[in-house]
Nucleic acid binder design. Structure first.
Lengths: 196, 196
DNA sequence: GCCTTAAGCTAATCACGTTAGCTTTGGTGG
DNA sequence: CCACCAAAGCTAACGTGATTAGCTTAAGGC
């Protein structure tokens, strides 16, 4: 058999780098093929379709996000872990907007989709981080969803250019993280009267 | 001139209803034309291009979101305004995921793009709502960004099916709103030591 | 040094957005 | 009441991008 210059993995890597540059919705088979020095149809020897390629990028991105997050939280706890984890995620999204977008757009294709464990690893890191706060067990799931929502929302809005430029986005992010930290340290939403 | 069965506005309405059903990225000129009982090229008598159509949907969506938000906050203040506004936005996104997605994807095309005032109306409502809390003036912008981030993130994740089903999403949303409310009432992130 | 098999290529197809140019139609001025 | 004309619709055609079919080639195992 001919030398395997390209593999599904290396094609996915190149595609991930590409979408980080040009944006996830600007991914095209022609552009990727050009990058790899081959013709468009040849890509189909390595990936089944553009949808397949997008899904592979999503898995790669989610896996890398998990790595980055784990490394950031490693050896820290409580406020420090939150701050480090949040910063790490924001950095990851800014450096890899394309694969992050791919990860968000992806849906598991089946029960044994590797995307599922990759996502779970991310969630597990967040859960471990929240363990450093003294939360009521029943509140952990809500805290986790709230945390994901803020970070995901902030990152998305920032990458999309949704914030005006007249005030520092970095400062806002620090403020946000601090806001969440204080809320979590306060034992979270114990006695509110807002529930409908 | 022939009776104007269709107008740019009515076509946009139909397109908005369509994307709410099939998803923003599944919008196609053919599908919309079929809905309207005309052939695809005829659409170009009313909108300039698919990009133009998407932008009109975005303006419509942002305008409607502004209306909904204003109505919800009307006559309330502080915690009640926050709760009502947040619920209203979540409901809007759930009922109109397509036009919400369009609004997020849209970028102003110029200084006199009607999308700009529509967005500003939304921001103004949030700002008015935050006025009910006793925040340091310099913190309002950060609080606003944080608020937008959580709500946007939550709505996005929910619509995308990002939450597992084994815990009530409604409950999580109430918890989230309550969490934010308490943080804002506490005077927000005054003395944290997390800033990098 | 053959022979299989994978990797790449060219040619062709399909779907969709878009443009060009023709046809119809209905409101309006005479 | 009628001719007119601009808007609204249609068919035909084009361009691009994804995908498939089938051919060609080259490298690794025997």
């Amino acid at each position: 058999m001919p030398k395997a210059r390209l593999t599904p993995a290396s094609v996915t890597e190149a595609a991930a780098a590409l979408v980080d540059e040009v944006g996830f919705d600007n991914l095209s088979m022609g552009l990727l093929a050009e990058r790899l020095g081959i013709k468009t149809p040849s890509l189909y020897k390595h990936v089944a379709s553009q949808a397949d390629l997008a899904h592979r990028i999503a898995i790669l991105g989610m896996t890398q996000a998990g790595d980055v997050l784990r490394d950031a939280i490693q050896g820290r706890s409580g406020s420090a872990a939150l701050a480090a984890g949040a910063q790490a995620m924001r950095t990851f999204v800014r450096e890899h907007p394309g694969r992050y977008a791919a990860s968000n757009a992806a849906r598991p294709t089946g029960p044994d989709d590797p995307f599922i464990p990759a996502s779970e690893r991310v969630l597990a890191s967040w859960a471990a981080m929240l363990g450093g706060y003294d939360l009521d067990p029943g509140q952990v799931i809500h805290a986790m969803r709230t945390l994901r929502s803020v970070l995901h929302g902030f990152a998305t809005l920032e990458v999309a250019g949704g914030f005006q430029i007249d005030a520092s986005v970095d400062e806002s992010f620090d403020w946000l993280v601090s806001f969440i930290d204080q809320g979590l340290r306060a034992g979270a939403a114990g006695g509110s009267d807002l529930a409908s």
